[in-house]
Amino acid sequence: MDRFVEDGSLDDSGESCLSQDDIDPRDTVDVSKGFTFAEVNTVRASTSKVVCCHFSSDGKLLASAGHDKKAVLWYTDTLTPKATLEGHASMITDVRFSPGMPLLATSSFDKTVRVWDADNPGHSLWTFMGHNAAVMSLDFHPNKDDLICSCDEDGEIRYWSINNGSCARVFKGGMYQMRFQPRVGRYLAAAAGNVISILDVETPACRQTLQGHTKPIHSVCWNSTGDLLASVSEDAVRVWTLGSGSEGECVHELSCNGNKFYSCVFHPTYPSLLAIGCYQSLELWNMSENQMMSLPAHDGIIAALAVSNVTGLVASASHDKSVKLWK
């Protein structure tokens, strides 16, 4: 729950430990020599903590939301607001754009999921009710426009049909955050406690569980090809392979001996780089070379990161009430 409700203290930047894998050298970047990554825009996004953000598939819009119960749509090129989405009765925990349609979905402590028309966001198209606890996360299937998934803090996962506004399936296994594998959408990664379940979307059997974190997992993210999954707990980042070959193997690990970790996203241009949101700082971790670069970024926890593979932008959302763009 730290990502939503708590701020840590500023400590020394985390130390890295092991990292081993063969990565195409064209993908690697030396974060200590000539590589640049800088803030390009910032906006005070809320009157209270911002805990989630996401880019539209064309990269033209950014959505942010959090404790003030509202979601805001921003034009990415100017960071000026397009619309404010109101309707939830409690804080918003997650916000996601549909990959294929102009739709946006939000999850909330009010136990509901709302689906909005990003082009006409005056009111929600659907309000999905059925969860008996705070809804912690949600995601759209990458190529089944009708399918949306959500999970609550009791560990219940629900599949919803946007076409008919009903719950299509209920099962257990996800509590904190869930993300569909991009492109093919064969797997759903769902974090509960210190374990990640990799669920087969069709069956929906649990294909495997990824174990190794000692503390609760705050965040999970896939790389753009869907063959690597990164997971973040406050004291560690682990990267797992889920493509061909050694599935479910941890291929990179970063341990934190100081500043806590809260969020992560794969860099849109350099696949060997992982951006990690910490308390006040943004860490860039070159997994292949095990190099770190630390950037002062916010005045609070960086609760969420998002990436646009179209524009190459990275967005950070923070408890300091601001959203920033980086490139």
Rank of each mutant, 00 (worst) to 15 (best):
D2T: 07
F4Q: 12
S9C: 08
D11I: 04
D11L: 14
D11Y: 13
S13C: 09
G14T: 10
E15D: 12
E15P: 01
S19E: 00
R26W: 05
D27N: 15
D27T: 14
T28H: 04
V29S: 09
V31Q: 06
T36D: 13
V43Y: 02
R44P: 03
S57M: 06
S57T: 14
D58W: 03
L62V: 07
A63H: 11
S64V: 09
L73F: 07
W74N: 13
Y75G: 12
Y75I: 07
D77N: 15
D77H: 15
P81D: 15
S90I: 07
S98C: 13
G100V: 12
A105C: 10
F109I: 05
T112G: 03
T112L: 05
N120M: 08
G122D: 03
T127P: 01
M129Y: 09
S137D: 15
H141I: 00
D146L: 00
D146P: 01
L147H: 12
D152I: 01
E156H: 11
E156I: 09
E156P: 01
E156C: 10
S161C: 04
C167K: 04
G174D: 00
G185Q: 02
A189R: 03
A192G: 12
G193K: 02
V195S: 08
A205P: 00
R207P: 00
T214A: 10
K215F: 12
P216R: 01
W222K: 08
N223W: 05
T225Q: 13
A236H: 04
R238H: 10
E247D: 08
H252A: 09
L254I: 14
Y262Q: 12
T269I: 12
I276C: 07
C278T: 11
C278L: 13
L282C: 06
L284G: 06
S288T: 11
S288C: 07
E289S: 10
M293F: 03
P296D: 15
A297I: 05
A304D: 01
N309I: 09
G312C: 13
A315W: 07
S316P: 04
S316F: 03
S316D: 07
A317H: 09
K324E: 10
W326R: 03
